[in-house]
């Protein structure tokens, strides 16, 4: 049973713990979820891959800010005439919606396309890196095999010429 701290002499911590134990035993709780880790959205390779930190940060900022909402909270810091100013601003916003909405909608669509394209590019970079890595390993293997073959050919040559 874990420790708790309660800085009050009128109530004993032992009593609280006793009540906790009673609650736990009443419900007979056997399961333990302490080892359940947070689900990781990204592989470790996402954190240590070929994409530079600057590119990752830029992508995060794009994902965060592509959708500019025009429905932001209207407020005023003025104490007495503030509510009237807020009402006035809301009226103006309502009357301008017909003009502003199509423009912001187009902008949001463009932003979304750019964000998707960037995400796809980053994904492609990572896939390319994976392919390069595989190719590099294959090449290493071929170089090693080649060296072995050269050694064997040299041995045979020496043997024949004795």
């Amino acid at each position: 049973m874990m420790d708790i701290e309660f800085n009050d002499e009128t109530i004993k911590v032992e009593d609280i713990i006793r009540k906790m134990k009673t609650e736990l035993s009443k419900n007979n709780i056997n399961e333990d979820i302490g080892n359940i880790k947070l689900p990781n959205h990204f592989d470790e390779s996402d954190r240590h891959g070929s994409v530079t930190p600057e590119l990752k940060i830029a992508l995060e900022q794009l994902n965060r800010s592509w959708n500019n909402s025009i429905e932001y909270e209207i407020s005023s810091h003025r104490r007495y005439i503030g509510p009237m100013i807020v009402l006035g601003k809301r009226v103006v916003r309502k009357f301008l919606r017909w003009y502003i909405n199509p423009i912001t909608h187009s902008q949001a669509e463009f932003n979304a396309s750019v964000t998707r394209a960037m995400s796809a590019m980053v994904k492609q970079i990572e896939l390319n890196e994976k392919s390069y890595s595989e190719l590099r390993n294959e090449m290493k293997e071929l170089v090693r095999t080649n060296e072995e073959l050269v050694k064997q050919i040299n041995k045979m040559y020496i043997k024949e010429n004795r």
Partner: peptide, 14 residues
């Protein structure tokens, strides 16, 4: 009330 350990079921009981 302070708990010194993250024993989730005990905290729930608390």
């Amino acid at each position: 009330l302070l708990v010194v350990e993250k024993d989730y079921k005990s905290i729930a009981a608390l």
